[in-house]
Every structure is written in structure tokens, then in C-alpha cells.
């Protein structure tokens, strides 16, 4: 079976990407959901998932100093370029100043391990987060949570997409809807490569336009089919027009416009998608976008 993957990103945060993802999932009625915004995962708040599976996500390394073996020479502190070696507040009976690793700054390079004359440091594999498999009314959902101060290298994002594809194949789903992360960095690249179609959700502000420009360049770099939709378009109709022209200049399609409506927040409070709320304008707008997207996929 040919599985299509629709990835929804925004460049700028807070444009309503996750709310729209949930609404499109509801309209599709039958799809696998993947939440690739692993740094601030919110899709589970509006798709009423039942958790089926929870697994640790190990990635990278972190240095650990054995205080018994540490002789307090400070070589590790001089070698570390990340400022991750701190003076310990504890001293031994001979008042030797010992060192500790601040996990939040350690990148697991191993330079301290190499330099330590007392063999007091070792690299341990690092618990960097968790991933989950859940069941929503529309189908299975793969989501994840990256640990604090972890590196969002894109590996967890790739893992979420891989698992989503696996479950789509196993359970014969022909559509995956992916909620992507904000920005244009590693996690975004890991979310969009190989997607069937990319929907960019933006808003009619200067920053929305500015971030859209960067995201569209990235999409062009990866030669992806892309469309743009403008949320809260009526806040600034003039800017909306400018953004739509900007999208057309980048050969992106126009998926539609959504009016400014408090149902976006109200739906979150109720833990449901915006298309389940009784706002006719929003419902019509989302229906319109969905019919466009179906023809792009």
C-alpha cells in the first residue's frame, strides 16, 4: 500500500499548527498521527489518546566522575569546551577540591575521559526522553517527550516517523498526519524529508511572513510539494494578501484561510479538536483546507 504522509509545520511557533493537525485528523477519520514536536509535544492534549506503550529513548552519552577516584587535578575542567565540569561543593578528608559534571551542559564528547589521569571519568549512555504509542478515535498515534537539556538532534523525530510508518503498514493505514516542530533546524529537517506534502501554517504578522520565507526556502531545498494556510487571517487582511503572494512566488499552493476565533483556545480547554466546536466559519475554513490537501496528496 502506498502510504502518504502529510507534515504540518509553521516556522514560527503558536500559529495554531497543532490545533489544525488535530482538526485534519478528525476530518480524515482514519489516519496515523505522529507528533514530531518532541520538545513541546501538545497534540496528545486534543486527540484524547489512550496510551498503549511507553519506551525509553536512549541517545548520546554523558560523562560521570567517580568522586572516589577523582584526584582534583582539574585537567577535565580545562579540556571541557562546554563548561560542563564544575567544582564540587564536597571535599574529602584531605580537603581536595573535586569535580562534578553538570549534565545540562555535557555533550558527551569524551574529551574529559581521555584527559583524566586517574581514570575517574566514564561515559554512560544517556536517557534522553521517552516515546509513546497511543490510540486516538482516528487511529494510532506515536508521540514522544524529549528530556530537559537533551539535544534535539532529530533522532527522536526520525524515530517517531519511523514508528508511525511501521504501524501504518502493519495496520493498513494509507495516511500519516505529522505535527512538526517550529523553526528550521535539525528537528524540522528530520520531520520533512521524504514527506508527500508539507502544509505550512502561518499568521498575518511580520514575524509570520519572515519565518515563512525561511521555511519555504528549506522546503525548496528538499524539493517538497508545499502549501500555505493563514490562520487568524482577518487580523490583518493586507498582510494576509502579502503572505499569499509570497507563497505563490515560492511556488507554494494556497490551502486556505482561517478566521481569528476564540474556539481555538476553547477547543484546547475541552481537549477536543477545533472542528468539533460549533463555530461555522472555522469549520468551513478547515473543511476547505482539507479538500485542498486531499487533492495535493
Amino acid at each position: 500500500m502506498n502510504i502518504k504522509e502529510l507534515v504540518i509545520i509553521s516556522g514560527k511557533g503558536g500559529t495554531g499548527k497543532t490545533s489544525l493537525t488535530a482538526a485534519l485528523a478528525k476530518l480524515s477519520g482514519h489516519c496515523v498521527l505522529a507528533d514530531c514536536d518532541v520538545d513541546a509535544a501538545d497534540l496528545h492534549l486534543v486527540t484524547s489518546p489512550q496510551r498503549e506503550k511507553e519506551e525509553p529513548f536512549m541517545a548520546g552519552w554523558e560523562a560521570v566522575i567517580d568522586s572516589q577516584k577523582c584526584v582534583g587535578c582539574g585537567i577535565c575542567q580545562n579540556l571541557c569546551r562546554y563548561g560542563a565540569v564544575l567544582n564540587s561543593t564536597q571535599t574529602d578528608t584531605k580537603s581536595t577540591v573535586k569535580f562534578v559534571i553538570e549534565k545540562a551542559f555535557c555533550e558527551g564528547c569524551g574529551v574529559c575521559v581521555w584527559g583524566c589521569p586517574a581514570e575517574a571519568i566514564e561515559l554512560k549512555s544517556k536517557l534522553s526522553g521517552q516515546w509513546f504509542q497511543s490510540r486516538t478515535p482516528y487511529g494510532p498515534m506515536i508521540h514522544a517527550r524529549l528530556g530537559i537539556a537533551s539535544e534535539n538532534s532529530g533522532k527522536l523525530v526520525s524515530q517517531v516517523r519511523f514508528l508511525a510508518k511501521e504501524i501504518a503498514q502493519a495496520e493498513q493505514y494509507d495516511l500519516i498526519i505529522t505535527d512538526g516542530p517550529p523553526g528550521i533546524g535539525c528537528p524540522v529537517i528530520a520531520s520533512i524529508t521524504g514527506a508527500s506534502h508539507l502544509l505550512v501554517v502561518t499568521e498575518p504578522t511580520l514575524s509570520g511572513a519572515h519565518d515563512l520565507e525561511r521555511v519555504l526556502k528549506l522546503a525548496a531545498h528538499f524539493q517538497l510539494s508545499v502549501s500555505v494556510c493563514i490562520n487568524k487571517w482577518d487580523l490583518n487582511p493586507e498582510q494576509t494578501g502579502l503572505i499569499e503572494n509570497q507563497a505563490l512566488n515560492h511556488k507554494a499552493k494556497l490551502a486556505g484561510r482561517i478566521p481569528y476565533d476564540p474556539v481555538f483556545s476553547e477547543a484546547q480547554v475541552k481537549g477536543i479538536s477545533v472542528s468539533e466546536m460549533d463555530s461555522i466559519p472555522v469549520k468551513e475554513a478547515v473543511d476547505h483546507i482539507w479538500s485542498h490537501l486531499k487533492s495535493y496528496l
Partner: peptide
């Protein structure tokens, strides 16, 4: 935004 390396 976020709580990973860039925010730290």
C-alpha cells in the same frame, strides 16, 4: 522556545 539545548 522549548527546553532543549538551544533554550539552555
Amino acid at each position: 522556545p522549548g527546553t532543549t539545548c538551544p533554550m539552555i
